[in-house]
Simulated assay, not measured.
Amino acid sequence: MLLVSSCLLGFDCKYNGENNENEEALKLFENIQVIPICPESLAQLPIPRPPAEIQEGDGNDVLDGQAKVIDKHGRDLTSDFIEGAYQALQQAKMNGVNLALLKARSPSCGSCQIYSGNFDGKLKEGDGITAALFKRNGIKVYTEEETGQLLNKI
């Protein structure tokens, strides 16, 4: 069983009301059972909404209380993103999942790289909040850019 970011499966849950449908992610349905998740939807953030980025750190720093998630209008969404991450973790634990395919660069799901926090399109090293929480709990995280590597693990 595998957790997959809902937006990669074609669900219109992206901040702008669209999706990030990914053919390779959809093909996973053919081979294994997948559980769609969207931490931001689990936190009941509205769709659409202004984009949000992690400022002054990454998801680990947010979980440790040292960074915040701020939307483009300056609204602090830190507690919402943390809530969504913990709800996603609960889904993983309830289903015995130890692998996840998450959306690259997302402030929730990004793994190894996320947006800079300045809304300038630049990237920085680090994990999104859900990805960081998953990793802390022994769940291996891949992005849609690593689907080939993931398929070798299944």
Rank of each mutant, 00 (worst) to 15 (best):
Val62Asn: 07
Tyr115Phe: 15
Lys72Ala: 14
Ile139Asp: 06
Tyr15Trp: 10
Leu77Ile: 08
Val141Ile: 10
Val4Leu: 05
Gly10Ala: 06
Ser5Val: 10
Ile54Met: 11
Ile139Thr: 06
Asp80Gln: 10
Gln113Ala: 01
Asn20Asp: 04
Leu150Ala: 11
Phe29Ser: 08
Lys122Ser: 14
Val34Asp: 05
Cys112Met: 13
Lys153Ser: 12
Asn95His: 15
Gln87Trp: 04
Gln149Arg: 03
Asn95Leu: 09
Ile54Cys: 10
Ala132Arg: 09
Ala92Ser: 10
Ser6Ile: 05
Leu26Asp: 01
Lys124Glu: 03
Cys112Asp: 14
Gly59Val: 08
Val34Ile: 15
Ile32Leu: 07
Ile114Trp: 06
Leu9Met: 14
Thr78Asp: 04
Cys109Asn: 05
Gly96Arg: 09
Met1Ile: 00
Leu9Gln: 04
Ala100Pro: 04
Gly10Thr: 09
Glu144Cys: 04
Ser116Asp: 15
Gln87Ser: 08
Leu63Ser: 10
Asn20Trp: 00
Gln90Cys: 00
Leu99Gly: 00
Gln55Asp: 00
Ala25Asn: 09
Ser108Met: 08
Ser41Glu: 13
Cys13Gln: 05
Asp61Pro: 00
Lys103Val: 06
Leu99His: 07
Leu9Ile: 03
Asn98Ala: 01
Leu26Trp: 01
Phe119Thr: 13
Asn22Arg: 05
Ile114Asp: 11
Gln33Trp: 07
Asn137Thr: 06
Leu89Ile: 06
Gly121Asn: 10
Leu2Ile: 15
Leu151Val: 15
Ile47Cys: 10
Ala131Phe: 12
Gly121Phe: 00
Leu133Ile: 09
Gly138Gln: 14
Ile82Cys: 07
Leu28Asp: 12
Glu18Trp: 02
Val69Asp: 09
Ser5Asp: 06
Lys27Glu: 15
Val97Lys: 11
Ser41Thr: 14
Gly117Lys: 02
Pro107Phe: 05
Ile154Cys: 05
Leu9Ala: 06
Pro50Phe: 13
